[in-house]
């Protein structure tokens, strides 16, 4: 069996893979949901939902599995952070509940009021997670108020403490990221005016994403220097920088060529690389402590499960995840091509 420190590093990477999988896959359908709030025409709002109808549910599972993997691999992080982020998580759950049923409910009753209600549930239920994702990442990056006691890690923060300017900045950055990603998928998959409208928004969304990324990186360098300690000697950091830049430059080039599918892949690369950059900065910490960085941060070493559990979980992941990726690709291929209005939900 591998030694404990190797397994802890592997699980840091695997957890990152699950989070990036969530950001890249559910990211576009959250973005499309949030974009639907901007549409006045109910049929066009319906197209937003229809474009992602066959695939959104599987995308959301990346979040659930990331939660389960965090519980299994780093239980003190799961316990301390989730109870600390309590109200934010309850808000997230409420949003995801409304969003989840909106797909099933919207087209069941032929009434404009009913449809508008579930369109809004879909939109707001997508906007809230899209924003909270970045707020959560932002808080983790700057550090959260935990102390270490004899019984373990203790949370010292409050809900309002989570809404600090730096975390909100990363929250808006995450939102811009998902909106861009969603608009590109929409432009690639939808027909007619719905696709054209998303295509018109995409360049502006991309520009705001780029600006917010630069700004958030600068603010982090100033406020959270621990994220940048020694990274310049780490080849992975430079790889992620290059990938993030390639993705960010690739988006407008592909959009200009009218290749929205390629632009969508580029934004997926950029999202993955930007999350990877944050992870390289964090490593080997999982959650830095804002009160006692050296003594009370949760790291892969002081907050992991046992060697046996990490090893068993690695086998589960190595058997299971290739299968998941395989059949997910098959299903996306089955549903390739443009989605006609009414294709999945019928017309009214």
């Amino acid at each position: 069996m591998m030694d404990l420190a190797t397994l802890q590093t592997i699980w840091f990477v695997l957890f990152l893979v699950l989070v990036v999988g969530y950001a890249v896959l559910d990211g576009f359908d959250l973005g499309i949901g949030a974009l639907s709030l901007l549409e006045r025409d109910p049929d066009r709002r319906g197209q937003h939902m229809e474009v992602i109808a066959p695939v959104w549910d599987g995308n959301e599972v990346w979040l659930l599995t990331a939660g389960g993997a965090l519980f299994a691999a780093f239980p003190p992080v799961y316990a301390t952070v989730f109870s600390g982020f309590y109200l934010a998580l309850m808000l997230l759950l409420a949003a995801l509940m409304f969003r989840g049923v909106s797909f099933k409910f919207r087209n069941q009753v032929d009434s404009p009021g009913w449809r508008t209600f579930w369109d809004r549930a879909f939109g707001v239920g997508s906007l809230v997670p899209a924003l909270l994702y970045g707020v959560a990442v932002g808080n983790v990056l700057r550090g959260v108020p935990v102390t270490k006691t004899a019984e373990g890690f203790a949370w010292q923060g409050s809900f309002l403490g989570l809404l600090n300017p730096e975390a909100l900045l990363v929250g808006v950055l995450g939102l811009a990221m998902f909106l861009t990603h969603g608009a590109l998928y929409m432009a690639h998959k939808a027909h007619g005016e719905a696709a054209a409208s998303a295509a018109r928004k995409a360049p502006w969304l991309w520009l705001s994403w780029l600006g917010l990324w630069v700004l958030a990186t600068g603010v982090s360098a100033w406020r959270s220097p621990h994220l940048f300690e020694g990274v310049t000697t780490n080849p992975l950091w430079w790889l992620a920088v290059l990938a993030a830049m390639a993705g960010m430059i690739g988006i407008p080039l592909a959009v200009r060529a009218g290749r929205y599918g390629v632009a969508f892949l580029a934004s997926g690369l950029a999202i993955a690389a930007q999350n990877g950059l944050a992870a390289v900065g964090l490593f080997p910490r999982l959650v830095p402590s804002s009160l006692d960085l050296a003594g009370a941060s949760l790291t892969i070493h002081n907050a992991s499960s046992s060697q046996r559990t990490l090893g068993t979980m690695l086998v589960i992941a190595l058997v299971g995840m290739p299968l998941v990726v395989g059949y997910t690709i098959v299903v996306y291929r089955v549903f390739r091509g443009k989605v006609r209005p009414g294709e999945y939900y019928g017309s009214h």
């Binding site: 599995t65 389960g68 691999a73 979980m313 299971g320 059949y327 299903v331 549903f335």
Partner: peptide
Amino acid sequence: AAEGVFAFFLESVFLG
């Protein structure tokens, strides 16, 4: 976590 990897993905992706 195994429930996520082996079960949730399978049922959700194939339900679509």
